[in-house]
């Protein structure tokens, strides 16, 4: 089957330590917004052309293990679709009938092993980090989504802007209380 979607790569070397430190803080504050379901504010952290892709997890015999099927997506969103179809559910006008968001699934993002590499574009980096989104639905049903983020980010003033996010999930069977999540 045709390989349509693969994780971004770069031949660039590791970015300077201050970039690692600044981006590490950026991701910590990003996680706070996501864990608190402040999606409107989170949208300010991503580019207009932001894409959010998760390929279908797949186990094969190959070494090294790609871990996903590059011919199939599990999530395909943009800044616009997240704004219109995710964030809009949480407004005062819509929350009463956004059944799955009331009460909201509680989440905590655990981030580790941040590696930032330069790319062939100035002030643009490929950031890889491991993510576990621990979730609890209605205070009792727990689960998680664990994987690796491949973010392309660019400097934006004193901060960063996320241009794209590609997440490779660890589990072949996605068993989480809320699948529709920014990992």
């Amino acid at each position: 089957m045709k390989a349509r979607w693969v994780h971004p790569t770069t031949t660039g070397g590791p970015a300077p330590l201050p970039v690692h430190q600044q981006l590490g803080l950026f991701y910590a504050y990003e996680a706070e917004l996501l864990d608190e379901w402040r999606l409107d504010e989170w949208l300010d952290l991503v580019d207009e052309g932001f894409t959010y892709l998760i390929p279908v997890p797949l186990v094969t015999d190959h070494h090294p293990q790609l871990g996903y099927d590059p011919s199939a997506l599990f999530m395909d969103e943009t800044r616009e679709s997240i704004s219109e179809n995710w964030a809009a559910r949480l407004t005062d006008d819509n929350i009463a009938v956004s059944w799955a968001d009331r009460p909201p699934v509680r989440t905590r993002r655990f981030l580790s092993a941040l590696r930032v590499r330069s790319t062939d574009r100035p002030d643009t980096y490929l950031a890889r980090l491991n993510v576990r989104v621990a979730m609890v639905r209605h205070g009792t049903q727990s689960g998680d989504m664990t994987g690796e983020r491949f973010d392309v980010v660019r400097r934006a003033g004193d901060s960063f802007s996320i241009m794209s996010r590609f997440v490779v999930l660890l589990d072949a069977v996605v068993d989480a209380p809320r699948i529709r999540t920014i990992v």
């Binding site: 998760i54 997506l73 599990f74 999530m75 395909d76 969103e77 679709s81 179809n85 559910r89 956004s98 059944w99 799955a100 996605v174 809320r178 699948i179 529709r180 999540t181």
Partner: peptide, 20 residues
């Protein structure tokens, strides 16, 4: 695929509320 994933896909809006 985009139409499917955002609506009736496993993470789509329809499934989100159906699952409840």
């Amino acid at each position: 695929q985009r139409a499917y994933l955002r609506t009736n896909g496993p993470g789509g809006m329809f499934e989100l509320d159906d699952n409840e």
